[in-house]
Design a protein around this nucleic acid. Sequence first.
RNA 1: GACUUGGUAGCUCAGCCGGUAGAGCAACUGACUCUUAAUCAGUGGGUCGAGAGUUCGAUCCUCUCCCAGGUCACCA
Length: 573
Amino acid sequence: MSIALSEQEIIRRESLQQLRALGINPYPAEAYDVTAWAQDITDNFEANPDNYKQITIAGRIMTRRIMGSASFAEIQDSTGRVQIYLKRDDICPTEDKTLYNTVFKKLLDIGDYVGVKGYVFLTQTGEISIHVQELDVLSKSLKPLPVVKREDDGTIHDGFTDPEMRYRQRYVDLTVNPEFKNIFINRSKVISAMRNYFNTQGWMEVETPILQPVHGGAAARPFATHHNTLDMQLFLRIANELYLKRLIVAGFDGVYEFGKMFRNEGMDRTHNPEFTAMEIYVAYKDYIWMMGMVEECLETVAKAVHGVPVVQVGPHEINFAGPYEKLSMYDSILKYTGIDVSAMDEASLRTVCADLAIEVDPSMGKGKLIDEIFSAKVEANLIQPTYITDYPIEMTPLAKKHRTKDGLVERFELFVNGKEIANAYSELNDPIDQRERLEEQLILAGRGDDEAMAMDDDFLRALEYGMPPTSGLGIGIDRLVMLMTNQSTIQEVLFFPQMRPEKKAKVATADDFINIGVPAEWVPVLNKMGFNTVEELKAGNPNKVFNDLGGMRKKLKLDITMPVKETVIAWFE
RNA sequence: GACUUGGUAGCUCAGCCGGUAGAGCAACUGACUCUUAAUCAGUGGGUCGAGAGUUCGAUCCUCUCCCAGGUCACCA
């Protein structure tokens, strides 16, 4: 945090004190009974004017236009903005005009929360406004909000656009750029639409451990932590798949979980270290059934957000109504490269990668090589929802072997707009096969693949008791929300995307200064004068510091007691 | 991780060949009883991301570092 206050912050703190001096609590404790909202007023006043003859509304002051003894201002609440009209003699019916002249005109600022009682009317220029009869201060804002000006035609002036500040201070972003709230409102709709759909089918929402002794269920580097009492290493989950399958073993027919996953890998516009996934497992089903379920689910979601199944994403109109195109992994590579890799061995695949200028490394097995070719040549072409099916067994240790095709597994991934958003299997429930497949992963790990899956003996024990045939699905919720809200970066669909810590100016704490005798209220002044550490202060000239303190006190109009000279000199001893 | 662009007032941005900075909005003082990017007159506000170097002198040139965006790589 910056220590020194800006001029505007000092003025706002003075206003705060003056409000208190007038007997106005700038942070009242009482509930404020709001009866109207901006959006409702602007939408419905003209049809039902009688409903708006005595209303109470609350929100932030966002603009002010003061014209002597009358003023207009805009109040922003959770639903939008509405103009208010204040007339000095209406809110100050007696001789005492303090509330208007001093409180409203001088002591209130853009960003302050106020409550207003009055009636709705139309101004001469036809704008729906509230004629204010009572004005209450609800919360004083001490930091100046960026002022974003909007014309009636939508032109924005002085937009608050710096992505770093928008993400670090999302509270400011959503206050001054309220249109971004729609992304998060739609995010909530995506999740609740899915949840409703699953519940309607009779499946149960569950919670499984985030702290796991073995990180299983996906190929990714984990975050490690330590439990003090048990004195053991724990990992933040990279997936919850193995726990949900344990619940299928336990006898539930359908279980699903929305939850944060954590992967200790790179960050970019489609990856955040923590992200939200939805996984669902349904007993007695297979991946073919799951395709139909996904189509129904995503169509429901798209309609919940947009009313129709067609969603505009960048330049594309994407139709989430099923059925979706189905293409096997090998056929998709054949379609987009003309090369049939279905019968190739590892050496031939390496040759193909070399011919296509795809970088590979020696730790990659056959499955990984095929995946590389797919990623490089096929993925970007899959704009409309497309199922890629029947993956090579090497890259999918948790899926059941294909019922007819040797060397493949029953798996599909759903690609939309060139990105994978869902992954599903006919789940492997043969415990002996599962053990062998995980052992192969250990061999890959031995070759240097640090993302190969770990052995989970308890999971294998569960399978040995018997898991019914089951189909499972995972959906990346953040990426789905990106699609449904037409956003190209994951940061825009996360309230608080991961950021590096803000740089702190190298400053001593206030206590360090207090310890050498500086009164607390003078510490910010010393900081403002450029003394950020006690050492810097002591290197200065005591007489000059004393004189400058007086100067700063005057310059900043500080209403605090000046220390005597002997006190200041004592700071230097 | 590589490359690249940027970091100047509370916000959005200018700043020429190196001579320690400007605008609009916001703020402050004043005027104004239907404005709406309100208007009019005046005023203040800046360790020019951090550190080092070159120089008589650095916001500007060089180097290192920090933060962010973009592209690529890695990665679901």
